[in-house]
Amino acid sequence: MNLNEAQLLQAYRKMRQIRAFEDRVHDEFATGEIPGFVHLYAGEEASAVGFCMHLNDEDRIASTHRGHGHCIAKGVEIKGMMSEIYGRRNGTCAGKGGSMHIADLEKGMMGANGIVGAGPPLICGAGLAAKFRKNGGVAIAFVGDGGSNQGTTLESLNLATVWNLPCIFVAENNGYAESTGSKWSVSCENIADRAAAFGMPGVVVDGHDFFAVYEVAGEAIKRAREGGGPTLIECKLNRYYGHFEGDAQTYRGVDEVKKVKESKDCLMLFSKRVTEQGLLTQAQLDAIDKEVAAEIEASVAHAKSSAKPTSADLMTDVYVSYP
């Protein structure tokens, strides 16, 4: 493993930020102050961070409806995200997108997306643009197990090989497309098995294990940067909350999430490994936890006190050019 202390601290901080952000949004949503639909990423942090730790702002990612984690991992500012989720004017998208559409193009984040399977076509385009720039840039699409069954994803896998694009397709298999089990809806044992049919490497990785994700991500990203073409990676992981906030989750076992949290929570596994190996101290991790808690608290206070969009904002930014 080639991560130095600063990188390990960064990885832990990002995962903790995502967890704390999602736990807080879960609580705040219950108060009724957050408008619309919210889909939380808690439990899946190792995937977003394991990939995005390899990326710079020139690299692009496209996300899913469950996009908060990808945003934070890619460096989108937390305050702006929280404001956006509250529908405030100073949000990342001026309060017009909300939870399902957070994007920050300057950070290379091409958007969370309300359409399942929407990311892969976008990153084929971004991959093509990166290829023209000849700067080694890569583009990554995250999809869920549900998104892995969309035609867009399958067409993208084909095109990425045909055009030899610097693209990585990450299937985050959390076991459920909304409430439909992936064991039933995915036609093969592993989503990654489909890679062979499209002439690209396919890798299955334990999505709870940051270090495992970081390693396979690194290999695929390096290959893509060097012109070696696309890769399909399946992260097997679990989500801690429902499909959406308010989902009664009657389709899940009583102790299902509890067992995962106790046995393979990604933050727990990370902490255990770095402290046991003497790479970081518990005090360092505790300090980050404290800082992140304060940061999330401040982001909520900031969002709640921020101005809402006005009627003057309603008609703006449909077009750049108006007659």
Binding site: R60, A62, L105, M110, A118, P120, P121, L122, I123, C124, G125, A126, G127, L128, A129, A130, F132, R133, A139, G151, T152, E155, S156, N158, L159, V162, W163
Partner: peptide
């Protein structure tokens, strides 16, 4: 052929890739 690119008969991805490329500088 880099700038006049044939695609597979995959209308959805060819238009989707155009959207992604337009978002990233082309």
């Amino acid at each position: 052929e880099d700038w006049v690119r044939d695609t597979p008969i995959s209308e959805e991805i060819l238009v989707g890739a155009a959207v992604g490329a337009a978002m990233t500088g082309l």
